[in-house]
Design a protein around this nucleic acid. Sequence first.
DNA 1: TTTAGAATTGCAATCGATTGCCTATGTAAT
DNA 2: ATTACATAGGCAATCGATTGCAATTCTAAA
Lengths: 341, 341
Amino acid sequence: MNRQKRTTIYDIAQKLNLAASSVSRALSNSDKINAETKALVLKTAAEMNYQQNTMASNLRKGSNPTIGVVVPRINQYFFSNIIAGLEEVTFNKGYNLVICQSNEVHSREVEVVNALMNQNVSGIVISIAAEKGSSDHLQQVLDRNIQLIQFDRVVEELETFKVVNDNYKAAYEAVKHLIEQGYRRIALLEGPQELHIFRERKEGYVAALQAHGYPVLAELMYANAWTKELGAIATSKLLEMEQPPDAIFASTSDFAALGVLEAATAKGIRIPEDLGICGYSNEPFTEITSPSISTIDQFSVEMGKTIGNLHFQEMENSGMVIKKTVNIKPKLMVRKSTQRI
Amino acid sequence: MNRQKRTTIYDIAQKLNLAASSVSRALSNSDKINAETKALVLKTAAEMNYQQNTMASNLRKGSNPTIGVVVPRINQYFFSNIIAGLEEVTFNKGYNLVICQSNEVHSREVEVVNALMNQNVSGIVISIAAEKGSSDHLQQVLDRNIQLIQFDRVVEELETFKVVNDNYKAAYEAVKHLIEQGYRRIALLEGPQELHIFRERKEGYVAALQAHGYPVLAELMYANAWTKELGAIATSKLLEMEQPPDAIFASTSDFAALGVLEAATAKGIRIPEDLGICGYSNEPFTEITSPSISTIDQFSVEMGKTIGNLHFQEMENSGMVIKKTVNIKPKLMVRKSTQRI
DNA sequence: TTTAGAATTGCAATCGATTGCCTATGTAAT
DNA sequence: ATTACATAGGCAATCGATTGCAATTCTAAA
């Protein structure tokens, strides 16, 4: 019914006939306080059910042990895993996570970043929206001296910590594997080339072909196929060619790979005998399809943890370290869809 | 390099030769301020790149437009969807979401709830951990007059808003559907009966059988099968019976249903002809398996939105309304694994 | 016994925004 | 011209915890 007044350090001080400052020191485990007094305060605080007012504390200290997280969508497997890993690290340090979605919309991203800055968060962790736009808002974060860690989809030019997958290497490995399995005309489903990650994957694809002496053919590279539907459409187009590909690397996502699988199966094409398929992300469903889909695991939970650790490391070094890029090495998960030997 | 000092209302006041209070009023769009002055302040604030110190504001106002969310695991499809829906509603109201995971561990749940209380969050949204334990921490939330909304897995006894699926009805519908498809010995995979949701599902199962004149057989009810592995084991056991079931309702999760599917397929049993399978949750992969799995959609994003709306409604009514339970009606998704007519 | 210095504790300012109350000015009615 | 009142803006307290500095007490060395 009636909001029972919160116990403050003043209440405790009064009860014990102490100054509030002493109570504060006792509670913050300062060494400028007598051990007995400290014990007494602690005991009384517990009895009175004292809970620190975090906002007052943060205001005074000028800090806020909170990390803002901005992702395109929370309910995407990759991102929710990142958050899960991150939370594990931050919780143990007594830090909070404030989560925001940009919904892939740039203006919304700007909004949420501003909101986070107002709260004086100690850091912002972001994977930028697919929609292109200026990165002034991120520059502002840096100007304010707020930690900024980018992951996965990053703005290259900004000098921040970046935690990314080695997309180049992953793509290279995937294509190399396809070649080793005897596939000779390997098609690529590309993602939006504005995003760095997709450019890198393409480069890896090209490099692997060249390294093994295979031609890089423009006709085998299909742009913007990053949903299941687009993957299916791309597949139909590709398979109608005079010399259709004998493998498709859906570098965009496993969803695209699924589209490939369904479209090809519908046409009566055998996987992996007639067509090899490799996806990207290691979505849970790739294990379940028939045949199961080879793909690339990004260690997303690990990535989240790495981001958290970076944040705390940088806090300690107070920003004097060189902002470097951490490359998490992804792992090729070979499954049935590419094993024909 | 050097942390540039934040602009405060005092800086603006000084520049404009005003009192801080006037600046504050202008910024908070009070009506006790001249329109011209207001405009001037707003303009100057923008020029000086003023950003409100949220902590100071919250401290003074004694409120914190933040909702704490406690879920067992963030990276479970159902929960991340809840959060996604919730975020949509709260962001538009200028509220923050602080996300915590209990990892299904009760002590951890208590910890995070305490941390949230300290921050004076205006509300806590929770789905309790599977591990059993006291609900004192939740009672304390109520005592503090902090909004508490439970969803999905709820503590019945606590008088709070509850947003749940109508598990009874969903299970009833699923079993009814199985019966209509001609299945006669329908087994049930149960979840931990400490959790209300699983009890309700069992009740729905029993009721549907009875309503259609079929016996309720203890031998067909298999306890605690809520992972893929346990689902597979349960299936092996069930299929070894003298009179094996001709359908299995994995009321625990789609993962269990997947285990059933794999175990049965491995034994050469045809789905849906020899065995019908129905899961629960509408995980994305249920569409993809072969055959696709019938399941129950919980409208998780909608649920998240509902929770958000409830929070704001209750804020307005300042807790004088009756704490009611909102039942979201789930929907049976009929797919191939149960369609044999 | 005196005194330097360590150990405790208290005082009061501070973080930045909000708000109740008061004053001064302007406007309108009598 | 006088009173009444609305409007605009200032003053200062306040939210609760922290912390630099001062004050006091205690310890131990000289």
